[in-house]
Design a protein around this nucleic acid. Sequence first.
DNA 1: GAAATGACAGATATTGAAATCTGTCATTTG
DNA 2: CAAATGACAGATTTCAATATCTGTCATTTC
Lengths: 226, 226
Amino acid sequence: MTSSSTPPAFLMAAATAPDAEAGAGGSGTSVLTAERILEVAEEVLRRFGPDKTNVVDVARALGVSHGSVYRHFASKAALRGAVVERWLARVSAPLAEIAAAKGPAAGKGAGERLHLWVRMLHAIKRQKVLVEPEMFKAHKSFILESGVAVSEHVAHLEAQLATIVADGVTSGEFRPCDPAGVAGALFAATSSFHNPASAASWSDPEIETRLKTVLDLLVAGLKAGA
Amino acid sequence: MTSSSTPPAFLMAAATAPDAEAGAGGSGTSVLTAERILEVAEEVLRRFGPDKTNVVDVARALGVSHGSVYRHFASKAALRGAVVERWLARVSAPLAEIAAAKGPAAGKGAGERLHLWVRMLHAIKRQKVLVEPEMFKAHKSFILESGVAVSEHVAHLEAQLATIVADGVTSGEFRPCDPAGVAGALFAATSSFHNPASAASWSDPEIETRLKTVLDLLVAGLKAGA
DNA sequence: GAAATGACAGATATTGAAATCTGTCATTTG
DNA sequence: CAAATGACAGATTTCAATATCTGTCATTTC
């Protein structure tokens, strides 16, 4: 699959991929499933970009009429939304692993996991901007027209952060606090490092240093004050 | 302290306004100065919006030919840039006051000034979005096409933050650190509360609470860790 | 003669007619 | 009869002709 320039090593987990259907039957002859449509739609979207992809293109790539696509998705927007949702889920997966790693020896401190989690989120988003500009554009335009799936995605990510914070409080590493509220604050405070709207500044070579400074400050705050 | 939708009292300082030239001479008969052009251009921009304002409109409002405007500004973009710069300077002024307030009794702690400064910046930007949508649009489109004046503005604001941080370090309230680097981090960490790109989320009633949580975390970090 | 003007060429924006796309549904297919 | 098709109406996008705007400069004004 698409790996190019030089993705940070920890990104690799996220690069594993689709093919859930490859072995099914003959190939194009299998029944038309929503999942199969999503796979092909993502491929087409990636090739032509969000502005130039239409339902007929997707249907043609599937070898069916566009009417058949509407049997599975109520509208073009719904289809696009589902594709982006799938894509966001793949962003979320490797982060969930970090958030869940609370083993005694494995997870080290919550502060360290917090660092890792945020840096991972930053790296993933940055990677997307660089190597998947078309999907990224789709992601952005989708956000603009229907924030629903995206706010769910954000809620998901904040819940992961809340897990890490709660772990830190339990272990005594962090000062007692409301994990959900603090998770929201952490997400907001680091948003210029993961929000697509700020992508322009990610080419600054000092961005990593700046992120580290922000995280050090936040983690110190979690440990000491409130 | 829960004041919300109503504009915070400290905004009022920024609302005082133009008229620097009203008493000059007769009226439109005075010589055409760059400053006079900027005044009128801002007025016209506010009335028609950035997309519908052209140089001829501005010239007509001034009662001169558009050729005369080009005697003072090299291009339409330069004119627009100068208008935005003026506007940004007015955003910056009340913040500079807070940053400079280091009097013994007046300024209280640097932590408090930091809170005040960031909340003020948030309030100003939010206010602009609500009551000056046209200027705000001009601001945004200007950012997109020429980041120069804006990055200067940001540098300016970060320098103000650095002043506050340095004061805190001097007084022993904050742990020793590089004020410039930390100021950059603080600006980034709070950007979702002042960056126009995030304006959509500013209607959330919980935004103030979230900002407070972020600031408490950051200030605690400045006081204790690094 | 410094400042302002307005006609002008090239660049940009507007417009509306033509082409394409979305979403539906009566019909066909296996 | 469940699944797929493709013709269709209305919505949207494209494209090229047309109109407007920007930036210049030879000329006029005071």
